[in-house]
Nucleic acid binder design. Structure first.
Length: 844
DNA sequence: CATTGGAGCGACAAA
DNA sequence: CGCTCCAATG
């Protein structure tokens, strides 16, 4: 009852607002979904109640309670440009959401007049949910809360015709993009092996990240691909997209920018529209996003960007940390607010992270502090494991241990550098029966059968979608082979019409052989019928009808292979998930933009995800496996990117550490399988950047220990880590120094001796000695003049077929084949394996 | 035209 | 290792 009263008061307040707003300022925009919203609904909301309370007693709003002075300032400074430099765990999201609540509460804007941009769908979802807590149902009136891409689509659909598209354009994913590019490269008469479409797709992505169209790209870039045909191909690609009525991810930003620039009247609408602009993760904006934002922000100047330069991890995607550094120049008079009090992590975790990140040079420099005492908490713990299998096993045991101590699986996460690391954990957890959830891993919508089904739906919704048609025109098999498809394709290209239309024309002629002609007629008629049902039949029903009538479900039912039933299940799941959308088009748009599905929200499960997708999240316990040179920092960063790439890797490590609230466990292994071959690895340099006051090495003898006891070929002696002393100062022999200088070799090989005595752990004395400048030639690691390993065989292998050999992991075996320095060995116990010759000893 | 097997190759991160 | 592409066969 009391609640109801408060809501009424709040509602009254909103009504007043309506009165206050100059009608001119609120030009009805897109109508339907943007009616002025009733802010408080049955669910109420803190801000709503707070405001109600304030109205009665003139008290400060309670939603501001509990904010520290800086946070409060960031929330209340709503007019003019504001830059919030918010370190990890300093309540960034809270500031953003409270700020929105505040803007609404003081009546400065309608929910629909706030533009709020995030990077990931997850962040958008979370923000929406948290705003909902504050302002209740008013959040439903915020159509402009979303990712750059989803907001870009929304704008583009409204003005598609200004860039030569129709508003029902298709959004192509990377896969479609590559297939299309491959066609174009071939059509140009180029060798698609020499000029891989994948690489060209990346170049185009890069250009679009900078907001460059075909005419804008630098001459050098244009020449770099396909014998100087780069620009021409890019142009052809854009033209083809137009014909296909399609846009790729980059276009979702670039097209709106072009529209804003060429149509000031359109831009003006948005200037009036967006009274307040908020941007999350500003350090990750790329040039295109930055331009987009600046164009829009010219209107109100009420732009608030929140970011942390230490968490900039998307440089490879074109992010410009500069954007955050030059904010004050771009928006003169900007208020800059620093949030440095960390509410998330223990002092140990914070201390470890801070020390690590201090090795970076290019940063604004913030000092995070916490008021949590650290004497009762564990340090960051570093574990060593023999290989990735054992890493998974030990990590699994650690999780079970935690579980026995009453910790929820939901509070634990495994954060990996690269997604291929995930599988090992999944395998292990399946055998353990441990619940896990993979976030952003191999995704539902990337499965073959799902993509096929989607292709059918795409053609029905958007008949010009040739890529989709080509995908399924002969799936299931209908006798429309390469020849027939080419015929349709050529016919279509010659007349510049969509393939489906071409097919429709072609079957009326005598040009085709009878058999394919009959099949093609069926296809064309089917699609015509399905399209005509689009407006009348419920979309889920239509979808299952399409899959039935096309013979697609039959195809899998007749399939005797083991995974066919699973695929049928997935198709059912696809149809089921369509129910949540109001139309087939809405469904298609959703999945092209947000590929992630997290079902089973209420299941208690460990999360497995990449470090990149972990940004913004937090967990009680965080596991960070795979801290080895070459994996983390990643080899490509070491080889190509120089110092800045390495610093980005370090920021990634920083992000990983700062996800943890209480416990943080790091793992490194000495053997990892890369490309199916076992390679020896050395611990990541980042481990040496953890200060010993905040990081400990796990005792090898603890419950998960037993490194040397691999099941295969076991009993080859003590663990190499028995005497590991990771944080014990530096080694200083000449050979050690040379080894360090050379450690940027393409392959990290067999460090230390193989005879079982203590391993020489990397003890970088000074941080800048081992890497950075001066990598002129690639050499193999050398210890005291002895060549330890080499990645490329420049001389014949010293082994011959039939040699009896011994391998650390697999035990004894016979050499069965030799290719360069790669040996195929029949092991007595482990079967046939391929290994590098450095890892086996010849027996006399 | 479809199926099959083998060679060859490749890979980081995401909307 | 796992995928795609190609050539050789049914």
């Amino acid at each position: 009852m009391i609640l109801v009263t408060r809501l009424l008061v709040f509602r009254a307040r909103i009504t007043t607002l309506e009165g206050m707003v100059n009608p001119e300022d609120d030009i009805p925009f897109f109508g339907d979904n943007e009616e002025p919203v009733q802010m408080a609904t049955a669910s109420g909301g803190i801000a709503a109640r707070a405001l109600a309370a304030r109205n009665r007693h003139s008290e400060p709003a309670t939603y501001l309670n509990g904010l520290n002075p800086e946070q409060k300032r960031a929330v209340e400074t709503i007019d003019g440009p504001v830059l919030v430099l918010a370190g990890a765990g300093t309540g960034k999201t809270r500031v953003l959401t409270t700020r929105i609540a505040h803007i609404l509460a003081v009546g400065k804007a309608y929910p629909s007049q706030i533009l709020s941009v995030t990077f990931t769908n997850k962040a958008a979802r979370e923000m929406k949910q948290r705003i909902g807590v504050l302002v209740g149902g008013a959040v439903e009136g915020m159509p402009w809360l979303g990712t750059f891409h989803s907001i870009g689509v929304k704008i583009l659909r409204r003005h598609a015709e200004l860039v030569g598209l129709r508003s029902d354009f298709t959004i192509l994913d990377t896969d479609d993009q590559i297939r299309l590019l491959k066609q174009l490269i071939k059509a140009e008469g180029l060798d698609d092996k020499r000029w891989p479409a994948r690489q060209f797709a990346m170049m185009i992505d890069g250009w679009k990240n900078k907001g460059l169209g075909p005419v804008d790209i630098p001459e050098g870039d244009a020449r770099a691909f396909a014998n100087g045909k780069g620009r021409q191909l890019y142009e052809a690609y854009q033209n083809r997209l137009k014909t296909l009525n399609a846009a790729d991810f980059g276009d979702l930003l670039c097209h709106p920018i072009r529209i804003f620039r060429t149509h000031p009247d359109v831009l003006k609408e948005y200037h009036k529209k967006f009274r307040y602009i908020l941007v999350d993760e500003y350090q990750d904006t790329n040039t295109a996003q930055y331009m987009w934002l600046r164009l829009i922000a010219q209107g109100s100047h009420n732009v608030c960007c929140v970011g942390d330069d230490d968490q900039s991890i998307y440089g490879w995607r074109g992010a410009e940390v500069d954007n955050i550094l030059r904010f004050e120049k771009d928006f003169p008079g900007a208020a800059v607010i620093r949030l440095e009090r960390n509410y998330r992590s223990t002092a140990h975790i914070l201390g470890a992270a801070a020390h690590l990140i201090s090795h970076n040079e290019g940063r604004l420099g913030k000092t995070l502090y916490t008021e949590l005492a650290d004497d009762e908490h564990d340090k960051v713990i570093v574990h060593a494991a023999w290989d990735s299998e054992e890493e998974a096993r030990a990590l699994g045991e650690e999780i079970e241990q935690q579980q026995r101590h009453g910790h929820k699986l939901n509070d634990m996460a495994i954060l990996v550098r690269a997604s291929f690391q995930m599988r090992e954990f999944e395998d292990r957890f399946v055998t353990l029966g441990l619940n896990y959830r993979v976030i952003g891993g191999p995704r539902f919508y990337e499965r073959l059968e799902i993509r096929d089904a989607m292709a059918y739906l795409r053609v029905v919704c958007q008949p010009a979608d040739d890529l989709a048609l080509e995908r399924i025109i002969n799936t299931p098999k209908r006798g429309l082979g390469e020849a027939a498809i080419r015929q349709v394709h050529d016919y279509a290209r010659a007349r510049d019409i969509p393939m489906l239309q071409a097919a429709g024309d072609l079957i009326m002629t005598e040009e085709m052989k009878p058999r394919p002609r009959k099949s093609l007629t069926d296809v064309v008629e089917n699609f015509r019928r399905w399209s005509s049902l689009l407006e009348t039949m419920p979309h889920t029903e239509l979808a299952s009808q399409i899959l039935e009538e096309s013979g697609y479900t039959d195809m899998w039912q007749n399939d005797r292979s083991a995974d066919a039933p699973g695929r049928l299940d997935n198709l059912k799941e696809l149809i089921r998930s369509m129910e949540d959308f109001e139309s087939m088009r809405a469904f298609l748009e959703h999945i092209s933009l947000v590929m992630d599905t997290d079902r089973n929200e209420n299941l208690d499960a460990v999360s497995i995800m990449t470090l990149h997708s972990a940004k913004g999240l937090e967990f009680e316990t965080v596991f960070l496996p795979g801290w080895e040179e070459g994996l983390f920092p990643h080899q490509r960063a070491l080889d190509e990117g120089g110092r800045s790439a390495l610093e980005e890797e370090r920021r990634l490590a920083y992000v990983g550490l700062t996800r943890a609230k209480i416990n943080c466990h790091i793992w490194f292994v000495s053997n990892r399988r890369i490309h199916g071959m076992w390679q020896s690895t050395i611990p990541s340099r980042f481990l040496d950047e953890l200060p010993s006051e905040h990081a400990d090495v796990a005792e090898p003898e603890s419950s998960y220990g037993g490194y040397g006891t691999s099941s295969v070929g076991g009993g080859y002696g003590a663990s190499r880590f028995d005497k590991a002393e990771p944080f014990s100062g530096s080694y200083d022999t000449p050979g050690w120094r040379r080894a360090q200088a050379n450690r940027n070799d393409a392959t990290r090989q067999n460090w230390g001796s193989r005879s079982g005595h203590a391993v020489e752990r990397v003890g970088y004395g000074e941080t800048d000695s081992g890497y950075g400048a001066g990598r002129t030639s690639v050499k193999s690691p050398v210890i005291d003049g002895e060549l330890v390993a080499k990645s490329v065989a420049d001389e014949p292998s010293s082994f011959t077929i039939g040699d009896r050999v011994f391998h650390m992991k697999f035990g004894n075996g016979n050499v069965a084949g030799i290719e360069g320095n790669k040996l195929t060995i029949d092991f007595d116990k482990a079967g046939q394996k391929r290994v590098l010759d450095n890892f086996v000893d010849k027996k006399q």
